[in-house]
C-alpha cells in the first residue's frame, strides 16, 4: 500500500491499496515514513517498508 497522509500524533497513516481503496494503517513498527512510501500491511499494521529505491519508482 502507498501512504497518502500521515497522522504522526496517533501513529496512524491513511493508505491506498492497489485498487485505490483507502485504509487506516498502524505505522508504529516502520516509522519514520513519508507520504508516498510503499509499505507491506498485514491485518491493519505495516510490518515492513519497501526499500527506498523500489518505493521511489512507484510513488
Amino acid at each position: 500500500m502507498t501512504v497518502v497522509k500521515l497522522d504522526e500524533h496517533r501513529g496512524l497513516a491513511l493508505c491506498a491499496d492497489a485498487e485505490g481503496a483507502r485504509h487506516t494503517v498502524e505505522i508504529a513498527l516502520v516509522e519514520p515514513l513519508r507520504a508516498g512510501a510503499v509499505i507491506l500491511v498485514h491485518a491493519g499494521t505495516a510490518i515492513a517498508a519497501l526499500a527506498a529505491e523500489e518505493a521511489e519508482v512507484r510513488a
Binding site: E26, A28, L29, H42, A43, G44, T45, I47
Partner: peptide, 16 residues
C-alpha cells in the same frame, strides 16, 4: 489468530 505476521498487530492494538 495467526503467526508472527499478525501477532505484532494484536500487540499494538492491546497497547493502544
Amino acid at each position: 489468530i495467526g503467526f508472527e505476521t499478525t501477532a505484532p498487530s494484536t500487540a499494538l492494538t492491546l497497547k493502544r
